[in-house]
């Protein structure tokens, strides 16, 4: 299926958000996620199924004021 991760299209085989993140290089990383604008806690990623067209946001710590 095709998902959009931080606006970039990706073809993924993974059924869950956790598996998709692993396949896209985020394994073990300090990140936070949202699916279609809703926060998905780290513990919920493996329980969160993806469907075609889903929009995933992945963020990491950054400098801020």
């Amino acid at each position: 299926m095709r998902i959009f991760l931080n606006d970039d299209a990706h073809e993924v085989e993974a059924a869950t958000l956790a598996a998709a993140l692993e396949s896209l290089g985020y394994g073990g990383r300090k990140i936070a996620t949202a699916l279609n604008g809703r926060f998905v806690a780290a513990a919920q990623r493996s329980l969160t199924n993806l469907v075609d067209g889903d929009k995933v946001e992945v963020v990491a710590p950054m400098q801020g004021g």
Partner: peptide, 19 residues
């Protein structure tokens, strides 16, 4: 100190380094 969060790609390391 104040901090923020921004998108990071699978290959990016900026966020991990900052953390």
């Amino acid at each position: 100190v104040t901090v923020s969060l921004r998108r990071e790609s699978g290959a990016g390391r900026a966020g991990q380094n900052f953390w």
